[in-house]
Every structure is written in C-alpha cells, then in structure tokens.
Design a binder for these strands. Structure first.
Lengths: 238, 238
DNA sequence: GAGTGGTCTAGACCACGAC
DNA sequence: TCGTGGTCTAGACCACTCA
C-alpha cells in the first residue's frame, strides 16, 4: 500500500507532463481534488506541496495552483544526482574509467571528518568520466568503511549509488555541496583532456545518510566547458 | 498575530543557534514540543519541516529529530539571495558601481521572454561589484516595466530587491538558475579586473513573482576566484 | 512495550481574489 | 458573496527504534 499523497503526487506529475494542462493553467481546486481522489484536503495539500517544491506549480492564494514552466533549462542537475543517473537521463555517450581504488587510514590523509572511531578506515575511489571520447570529469570519492565494507572494481564501474541504495539498503538523507573554480592540479592535467583550459570547476560535497551520519565525501572536478549546474529555488520566507 | 508554526520555527532556530543543543543531540519529541508550545502536533510538525528543509535537523523515524551541522561551508548562497543581502551577512568590504541604466524595447534585444504585451518595455541595469577594491562581478539585470515602472540611479545604487519587496510590495516567488563557465566578453574585460583570468562564471536566472509571472532576468558574471556557490540538498524521494 | 516520527482524517476559521 | 488556498486542531492508526 503506497502512501496516498505520493500516489496523488505521481499521478499529477504524469498528468502535467502529458500536457493535460498548459503553462499558466490552474489545477483543480484542493476541494475538488480531494473529492476526485476520495481523500481529505490535507492529504491533497501534501501532494501539492511536493509539486510546488519540485517546481511544477505555484500556489496563489484566492486563485488556485498555477502550472509553471520548470524546464526553461534543459540539463536538470538540481539536488543530489549521481553521474550514472544523469547520463542515463540525458542519454549521453559516456564511459567510466576506474583509475584507482585505495583503502586508507584517514589520519594520514587529512580526512579527519570522515573518521568516526579511530580504527575506521576509508575507501578512496578515483574515476574518470569520458563523454563523447573526451576525459572531462575526475571524480574522487571517499567512503567510511563502517558503511561500505568493501568496494570492488565492478561496483565502481557501475553506479556506486545504486549499489549503496539497492544492495546495501542504505538511504541517502542530505548533502552539502560547494562549487568553486580552481587551478588544475598535476593529477587533473595528467588524467583529464584539459586542452589548455586553465581552470577546473570543483564540486565538493559531504553526503549524509538518513540517520544524519556522514558517510561520504566527494570531489568532482570538471573541465569548465562541460560543466553546468541548474537550480530551482523558492524565496526564503521569514 | 504571527503564524504559530513560524513563531515556533524562529524560536527553535534561535535556540539551535545559541547552542542550546550540540550537533547530534535530539530535539524534544513532537509530543513534548506540542505541550511546550501549547499547540497541536501537526503545527509542531510544520515548524520541524521548515527546520529540516533549511538544514537544521534531520528527522529519524523511531528516534527523533537530530541537530545537524549546516555550516560546514561558510558562504551561504543557497536559494535566492541578493548581493546586498550577501555582503551584509558576510560583512564584506564592498561597493556597487552603477555603470548604465537603459530603457529598452525587448523586441530589439532578444529578450522576447520578458515581454508580455507588445508595448511593454524592459529596464536594463548594468552594475559592477567591487570587493576589497577589485572589480570582480558584473551584474546585468532586466526588468519588465509592467512591474518596475521606474528605475533611478539611487535605487540601483542600493538594493533593488529591497526596493521591489519593501517599496513596491512585490513578492518574489521562485527562480530558475543556471551556472556555467564561459570565456570573457569584451565588456567583461573592459569593466572587470580580470587580471589574466581566462574564464568567467556566469549565473543566469529567471525570477518569478508570487503569482508565477516572470518579471526579471539576470546575468551575474563573476571572476572565477571570487565565485563560490553553496547548496544544501535533500535526496529526492520517489 | 513504550516512545518516536509518518500518515490520514473531518472539521473549523481565516485572508485573499474574482465577480 | 463565493470560492480559493493558508492555518490550526484533536484524534486515530501505523512503522520504526530501543531497551
């Protein structure tokens, strides 16, 4: 038995994406939807809140819920998404090269944040992402071995996130992400096709599980012409 | 009379920021908070949802609400925030130079998106942001004159957002933002202290009002060493 | 088993927009 | 005035964690 408000949300997303309404149209009112889906208004409101958060509608008091145009930009990277999810969605011609897998003692590597107990170690994976035959992204990932006891080349070759969520049953909760532009390191120059570019875009993130524990630190280093970040944001209210 | 859940949210933020709890601590349970604030549990849950969205807590089923560390990175730019708000928050030594104010016919300027009726025009403001004596950001803003009938140099010198929200009474709803790295234009080289940098970071956004109407397009061009973007994201659920 | 957060309900009153 | 979304309530049942 799926959650009712999620079922309604998914149904409405489907109806919006199939152009049942056009941009600027109003959704049926909350009371009408409550009747249609045979549920209470608060449950409808939960589904509509999700639609609003994800940029499908804008609620206007006294009027209704307006369908808005979310996909002004074509490369949806808002939120946490893995490279594999992304390339699948965009149908990019891509390849992943596992460059190295190491099992480190964090106290030697200035990765103090990741260590919980002093005898916990850290997995480090470096992967190169090739798009259309060019090496344009270097992903450096660090995992606490408390959560990921073993990493093999096969796992790293596929989607580590898929492995984590579906095989290990861990649930990602939230991430903090930082985007800056830096000078390329020796390693960048060696592993990527930088072609004279004098900068790389670096995305550093700390990924936490459902129970708020930090389990991964990543550094994703992009050739600047292949970088694009898209964000959908609501104005912060008081 | 302020909204109850907002009052509770603000109170809890204050208590968190004053270190009433440390990272990893549990908030009082929802039932206990409901009693403390003399309200229903659903109202408490609204306040906690806000805390969660804004990265103060992570709710864990069966356990409680965990205080999490939001400020691993020090430059909070997530969401929609204006340059003036930012510099104030960071206490930066900054200055704004209004370079030009123009009143344009959008059909000549490939700004078709902004025009609603054919006789509406568009305000264009170019401003240079100086930090510590260096010209490092070029902001190019375009406003539909339906919403902003008049822009003066004085308004542009201060915070346009402040003017819009407090003087005109307009309410910002949401924005779509895109971040890419580009080659500097002639204008960038002329107006900014680029010092041999061969890239600029460009943030393009479309800002919509509360009623979902598009009223502003902006392009913010940053010298790469002075650019930093921070994001707090929750994992998308199905 | 006790306590936690997650979902859902049926109803109430309010602020706002359109007519 | 009527319909809309926004807030708030009191209660119910469930799924989960932990002792």
């Amino acid at each position: 038995m799926q959650k009712k408000y999620l079922r309604i949300y998914n149904d409405l997303v489907k109806r919006i994406q199939s152009n049942s309404w056009t941009i600027g149209d109003l959704l049926p009112s909350e009371n009408e939807l409550a009747a249609q889906y045979d549920t209470s208004r608060e449950t409808i409101r939960k589904a509509l809140d999700l639609l609003s958060q994800n940029g499908y509608i804008q609620k206007v008091r006294g009027k209704g819920s307006v369908i808005i145009n979310r996909n002004q930009f074509s490369f949806p990277v808002s939120g946490i998404e893995s490279f594999t999810e992304l390339t699948e969605k965009m149908a990019l011609n891509s390849r992943t090269i596992v460059h190295s897998i190491k099992y480190l003692d964090p106290k030697n590597e200035s990765m103090e944040i990741l260590k919980g107990n002093p005898n916990e170690k850290v997995w480090n994976v470096n992967r190169i992402r090739e798009i259309d035959g060019e090496k344009v992204i270097l992903d450096k990932d660090y995992f606490n071995d408390k959560y990921i006891p073993l990493l093999t080349e096969e796992i790293c070759q596929g989607s580590i996130y898929n492995y984590i969520e579906n095989e290990l049953g861990l649930v990602i909760g939230f991430a903090q992400k930082e985007i800056v532009v830096e000078n390329p390191t020796e390693e960048d120059r060696e592993l990527l096709d930088l072609e004279g570019f004098s900068n790389v875009v670096v995305i550093r993130s700390q990924v936490h599980l459902d129970d708020a524990s930090l389990f991964q630190i990543t550094e994703s280093r992009h050739r600047p012409d292949k970088f694009r970040f898209v964000d959908f944001a609501r104005r912060v209210k008081n």
